[in-house]
Computed example of a mutant assay.
Amino acid sequence: MKVKQGDKGKKKPVKEPSPIESESEEAVEDHDVYKVDEAGLKKPKTEKATTFSSYISKVKKQVHPDMRLSKSTVKIMDSFIEDFFTRLCTESSNLMMSVGNKSLRAEDVLRAITLILPGEIGSHAVSEASKAISAYEMDKESRKSA
C-alpha cells in the first residue's frame, strides 16, 4: 500500500489494485461503487424476492403440527404458489377484458378459479373464496355503521 501526500502534509493511504484485480469485472464494479459513495448518491435498491414460506409454515402447523418441511420442499411449494397466482391473475385479466370491464371484480377471480382448478378442488376453492368475500363485506358494513 502506497502513502499519498495530502494537501496539508498529512499522509493518506491509497489502495492500488493488483494486476489480477484490475482485469476482473469485480474490481470494475467495486470501483463504480466507490464513485457512487463519493458523489453522495444512494446505491440502487435490489428488489426482494417475494416468498410465501412464512404462510406455508403457518398452514402446515395448523394441518400437521408435528411434521417438518425441508428447505427444498418449501422452495417447491413456493414456486407452485407463485405459478398458481400468475395463472390466476392472467386468467382473471383475460376474463375482465373479454367482458369489457375496466376493473377486476371478485366474480372474475371466482370464474378464473373455476377454469383453472379442476373438479372438486375448484368448487371447494370457490366456496372458500365466497365465504371470505362475504365475511369481508360484513366487516366493511359493520365498520360503516360504527
Rank of each mutant, 00 (worst) to 15 (best):
E21V: 12
T90S: 05
R68P: 00
S79Q: 10
A106I: 08
V36A: 09
Y136N: 01
S79K: 15
T46Y: 01
A106K: 04
K43Y: 15
V14L: 06
C89N: 03
M77E: 04
Y55H: 08
K75C: 01
I81C: 08
S57W: 02
H124K: 13
N94D: 13
S57I: 12
E91S: 07
D7I: 06
P13Q: 09
P65D: 05
E38T: 04
D7N: 02
F84V: 05
S57D: 08
Q62G: 10
V126N: 01
L110P: 00
I116F: 04
K58N: 11
S98N: 09
S53T: 10
T73E: 13
K58M: 11
E38D: 12
I81E: 02
H64W: 03
T86R: 11
S24A: 12
T50M: 12
A129K: 03
R87A: 06
P44L: 10
M138I: 04
G119Q: 10
S79A: 15
R111K: 07
M138C: 02
G6E: 03
Y55M: 03
H31W: 07
H64D: 11
A129R: 06
T90G: 04
N101L: 07
R111M: 11
M67D: 09
P44W: 01
S123D: 06
S18H: 06
K2I: 06
D139W: 04
K140V: 10
K11L: 14
S79T: 14
N101P: 00
Y55P: 00
K61A: 13
D7P: 01
M96I: 08
E26I: 07
E82V: 01
S54G: 15
M138K: 15
E47N: 09
S92A: 14
V99Q: 08
K11C: 02
K2Q: 05
N101Q: 11
N94M: 06
D66T: 13
T86N: 14
L110M: 12
A27E: 04
E16M: 13
A39L: 15
T114F: 06
E25T: 12
K11E: 02
S53W: 03
S103G: 09
P13S: 14
S24M: 14
T51F: 03
T114I: 02
A112Y: 02
C89T: 11
D108Q: 09
E120G: 00
D30K: 14
M77H: 02
L110G: 00
I113E: 01
F52Y: 15
E120I: 13
K2M: 00
G40Q: 11
V36F: 04
L115D: 01
D66Y: 07
E107L: 04
A135I: 02
A112F: 01
K140L: 12
L115E: 02
L104F: 05
T114G: 09
V63A: 08
E21G: 00
I56S: 02
V3D: 06
Y34V: 10
K48H: 09
S79L: 13
M67K: 09
D83M: 05
D83E: 10
E26R: 13
R105M: 09
V126C: 04
I116C: 02
F52N: 08
V33M: 09
K60S: 11
V14E: 07
R105F: 06
K12D: 07
V33F: 05
K131A: 15
I56M: 04
A106W: 00
K42P: 08
D32F: 09
E107I: 03
K102H: 10
K4H: 00
V28E: 05
K131Y: 14
